[in-house]
Design a protein around this nucleic acid. Sequence first.
DNA 1: CCTTGTCAACTAACATGTTAGTCTACAAGA
DNA 2: TCTTGTAGACTAACATGTTAGTTGACAAGG
Lengths: 236, 236
Amino acid sequence: MTNTDIDAARLQGISTFEGSLAQKVYLALQEAILSLQFRPGEVLRKALICEKLGVSRSPVAEAIARLANEGLVDVIPQSGTRVAYFSMDDIREGSFLRQALELASVAKVASDRTEVQFAQINRNMRLQTLLIEDGDILGFYQADEEFHELPMLFTGFPRLKAVARLVSLQVTRARMLLLPTPGRAVETLDEHRAVFKAIQNRNPDAAQAALRYHLGQLMPRIEALAETRPELFQSS
Amino acid sequence: MTNTDIDAARLQGISTFEGSLAQKVYLALQEAILSLQFRPGEVLRKALICEKLGVSRSPVAEAIARLANEGLVDVIPQSGTRVAYFSMDDIREGSFLRQALELASVAKVASDRTEVQFAQINRNMRLQTLLIEDGDILGFYQADEEFHELPMLFTGFPRLKAVARLVSLQVTRARMLLLPTPGRAVETLDEHRAVFKAIQNRNPDAAQAALRYHLGQLMPRIEALAETRPELFQSS
DNA sequence: CCTTGTCAACTAACATGTTAGTCTACAAGA
DNA sequence: TCTTGTAGACTAACATGTTAGTTGACAAGG
């Protein structure tokens, strides 16, 4: 109801991505939304997107339909499309769902892991330590993501990672607003190490407990955002 | 590679459903696939679907795109679309994902439930007992589904049920092949009661254990299908 | 000043025309 | 007989034309 900012063309070219045209448009728009280059509440203008990306309305329509399905945009029938506002309810739900999937994965991996899988987690842990020592926060951020993905990969269920990503898209977007504080990185490393030890000891319950604690650290930090950046959250 | 059966018009009218045209077509096709009226491997012919449902290609294309996203159909680019075969890998994965979500839900509900929520579960349990006593297997099947949905509803996370449904679509389709055996219904009731008792006692661990055991009963029965109905499973 | 009705501009949704890639059948050659 | 190449039919993917519903500005009336 407040801002109807015109959709500027800060949208990287389509050729960065691969797949069908619709897929490329989808990825380009998703990245723009998740990286907050498209701000919550902003109106998406199909005509401009078509022009900027040099495609017709069909692939853009399909891409927007997928984004709507994921909850990243709100389509008002016969009227318009806008980038979804942040919603603490959505974020809490996404966090819960992702936690459910990660907990199940880590328990399974703690039970069933092979030595080569463990070696891969071990290597990732050592990499995290190394990056912290060097103060490479961005690198640590990526290693962090990998640490969370490895157990899901090791379950042998290929869709798991995609589903985990799908349910936590809102969380991912919200995390973009959290400044990477160095102190937090060290804490994170410690919490990861607790999960790692439990996997090493093949102790599913301990692994779940450690991961539950670790994931529980995120929501309070996001909740603080609703206070500092209220304009990004839905007004309803 | 084997059968390229022509897509017959056993597809109920579109007016049964509500929403946009694309949504109606999507629901109609999904129901036909889940109920096995469209058999695995069968080729979907857009032209026939358009004619039968009296719509143009646009909503049909959108519907098929969504079904492909869910894994219910396989689209071969520039070539054709066919109903996905059963895949034990997919089914095992769906079962794992659904279990992860249900376990998380039931633990949360065992911890946080209100008295009015408990009363609703209690009512459902008594309904299940009643239907078993009357030998109403179909009615019990529906009460069974509700029993599994209630904890998800009580979490207060509206998307949870939809995500659980999404990840276990293949399981749902496979369940259609399982004959409802009366003996199994009685066992099911006992297993449900164990979950119920744990929720009553506000014991999350016991609730998870009981539900884990209950859900663990399903996969072996589905696995038997791969032996008896191999033509429905992917040949790869 | 506030309400209410109308109308024009804009949009998503739908229909339809066009393009380009894939598969099958079949014929020609080995 | 088996391979290989090729033409044609079929398809998804894409482009574009059309329809119908929503919104907001603004004027007329209270």
